[in-house]
Design a protein around this nucleic acid. Structure first.
Length: 103
DNA sequence: CCGATGACGCGCC
DNA sequence: GGGCGCGCCATCG
């Protein structure tokens, strides 16, 4: 059973549009918290497949970060959505989505 | 209750 | 870009 904290994480993650990505820090910030570390934990434990697009969440430096099915798979999914992934890295300048903060 | 853990972030070399 | 160390916070054992 998801904790309140996790529910928030999924809530936010679900808002990330296709073809865009966000960072763990952005999500924490969006829920008015600094637990970016815990955000990662939440996504790791609950890979609610299509419901939560956890593959659209990358690290602040643009690296893919982790993924239950492997970074390789994560990169594939992102490319399929139009995100350019180079050497396990994403160009945040072009694909970072941070508009959900103003909800 | 408390120490260990991790899909993190940031500064520094 | 790669590697190291410290700080961070919710969960887990």
């Amino acid at each position: 059973m998801p904790t309140e904290f996790e529910k928030k994480v999924y809530e936010i993650t679900k808002r990330i549009p296709k073809g865009k990505v966000s960072t763990y820090k952005q999500i924490a910030q969006a829920m008015n918290s600094k637990a970016y570390r815990a955000v990662g934990q939440a996504l790791h434990k609950n890979p609610y497949s299509p419901k939560v697009p956890c593959h659209r969440v990358v690290r602040s430096d643009g690296s893919l970060g982790g993924f239950a099915l492997g970074q390789r798979k994560k990169a594939e999914m992102l490319r399929k959505e139009g995100v350019i992934v180079k050497k396990n890295r994403v160009n945040l300048k072009k694909f970072l989505f941070k508009e959900f903060i103003s909800s």
